[in-house]
Amino acid sequence: MDWVVFVVAGAAVLAGALGVILSTHPVHSALMLVMTLFGVAVLFVAQQAHFLAAVQIIVYAGAIVVLFLFVIMLLGVDRSENVSSEPLVGQRPVAYLAGIGVIAAIFLLARTAWVSGAASVAGAADGPGSNVEKLARSLFTRYLLAFEMTSVLLVIAVVGAVVLARHSPSGGVRGSEDAG
């Protein structure tokens, strides 16, 4: 049963990823990205990371992909693109070679070096209690400072997005060359 889940979800993940990079239409790529994200969420559930699976669906599929689609529609680039043109000669074969190199390096590392760290440094992942409870206990004790820092990061991101996306009609400090 576990193998069935793994094979189906893994096939969805890989098919979605290939769909993202091979689709000529940006909207199709975004929808293929949703398929990959759902597959990864299923794999999270299969590994007892229930909370992260829920967050994966809510944040990625619910917010990030919608934001992508929103920008695609806002900018009106929902048209097909010529993916076969190659302005940089030899870019494509080199890219495929680089991809094969990356995967070969990872598998080579996996064969020679393997996990040797001490188990349960930050608390056990299994045992009594729900996944949410254990994650929260770790997050609000051991990683509390990092958790607080993420709130600062989010505030900075919001301010940055507002500053970047603001359109100054009077041609103020920035954007004086903005045509409209």
């Binding site: 794999l43 999270f44 590994q47 007892q48 990371a49 909370f51 992260l52 996990v115 760290g117 188990a119 349960s120 440094v121 930050a122 608390g123 056990a124 992942a125 299994d126 996944n131 254990k134 994650l135 770790s138 997050l139 051991r142 990683y143």
Partner: peptide
Amino acid sequence: VTYARMLNDIGGQV
């Protein structure tokens, strides 16, 4: 997440 399961460590999920 896979390493969190293999090493039985919740830190990976954090």
